[in-house]
Amino acid sequence: MNKILRTLIPFDIVKGLSITGKHFAKVFFSANRRKVPFHITSEYPEVPAKVQPRYRGRLTLLKDEQGEIKCVCCLACEKICPTQVITIEKGKKEGRKMPFPVRYDFEMERCIFCEFCVESCGFDSIILNHQFELAAYNREDFSIGMEGLGQNMYEPSPVGKFSVADD
């Protein structure tokens, strides 16, 4: 008898619908949707994405107080990179004791954002910044060098905002 009753009256469906209904009511009966703490979707392109302090974004060369590039071409990052995306050419600059990178190429297409390069750097001269939007329209835009190709390490990529971390 009990079994027949349970088959006839869909208790399970009522139970499931009550859960979804509860969640629906929570959001629906609050006047301003944005203030509801239960609101879990983010309106991404309008509201910028929040990233954590340790977020791993695009590789960036840092400068010291004099505005000079900190990198001294020890090639540690080039060696440790699992996908070989960094190419450095050693050179000299007038008025500078340490070697100076004439070329510092970074192929973002192949980069896997593992942060091994930053970890291996003994001079704290590179960092993965907090740029969230890393898309670009052309393939060339992913080949990032110090200068050239209309784009360098210190300027925003064509899509998205970008800033050099200053620590």
Binding site: V51, P53, R54, Y55, C114, E115, L128
Partner: peptide, 24 residues
Amino acid sequence: NEAFCGSRLTTTAFRIGGLREDLP
């Protein structure tokens, strides 16, 4: 995951011998 190691999915969370950084 992102707070601990900076990435959500491809974490690369540990190192041989321990961790890279302590908990944030």
